[in-house]
């Protein structure tokens, strides 16, 4: 791609408008990336959208990334502008212990499904979003599947379906097996195997 020269123009423009973005600024062949704190997202993206020289009018993507239980969440926005031949990536950091970030639905209505998906999968709360409910999982679901500390057995034992669904061999399917105490059926199974071995 022939981007770098023109991406340079975008970088200069960005630094001109927001000198404090220099710290988190990074480019690759066709992307310019800036990193901000979560609370700033609406203010920054509004300027990016409305400034005629920047003109990032199209919200191409909004995704959440979990950097692990001890780290942080990031909400990553990708923006398109017909003025600049590079994607603009805005990484907004979110506190993982208390994941709140302002909503973008006032700027782009289309951010609604993105934010509902992020809420559903990561549990990030978008303040001001008036329809923040689960979009893929059922409304009574309690976990956030795309978090890095999500474990399926934990989740299943925690869900409303735990212990209700008749499984073929409940003794081997015991979903509480991660607890210290083995379920009786599993113990019996293990003993029978130990006896058969010698």
């Amino acid at each position: 791609m022939t981007a770098p020269a023109k991406a340079g123009a975008l970088v200069r423009l960005l630094l001109d408008r927001f000198p404090d973005l220099a710290a988190g600024l990074w480019t690759d062949e066709d992307t310019v990336e800036v990193t901000i704190e979560g609370e700033r997202n609406v203010a920054l993206l509004q300027v990016l959208r409305d400034d005629p020289e920047l003109n990032f009018f199209f919200l191409a993507d909004a995704a959440a990334v979990d950097y692990g239980p001890t780290e942080r969440f990031e909400v990553v926005y990708h923006l398109y502008s017909d003025r600049h031949p590079a994607w603009l990536r805005v990484r907004a950091r979110v506190n993982r212990a208390d994941p709140h970030i302002p909503t973008l639905t006032d700027l782009w209505e289309g951010a609604m499904f993105h934010e509902r998906e992020m809420f559903d999968m990561m549990g990030i709360v978008f303040d001001g979003n008036r329809d923040l409910r689960r979009i893929y999982m059922s409304p009574d679901y309690r976990s956030f599947p795309q978090r890095k500390d999500f474990l399926l057995p934990d989740d299943a034992a925690d869900s409303s379906a735990a212990g209700v669904r008749p499984l073929e061999r409940p003794e081997t399917w015991d979903l509480t097996r991660l607890s210290d105490e083995l379920a009786p059926g599993v113990v019996a199974h293990a003993e029978a195997e130990a006896e058969a071995k010698p």
Partner: peptide, 25 residues
């Protein structure tokens, strides 16, 4: 259409010439 994030043929049918093949070849 832009505000709703509609893209592709649906966006172009509304008169916005945004095609990734041209915009970001």
């Amino acid at each position: 259409a832009i505000a709703l994030g509609v893209s592709g043929p649906n966006l172009r049918a509304s008169g916005v010439p945004f095609d990734v093949r041209k915009a970001h070849p």
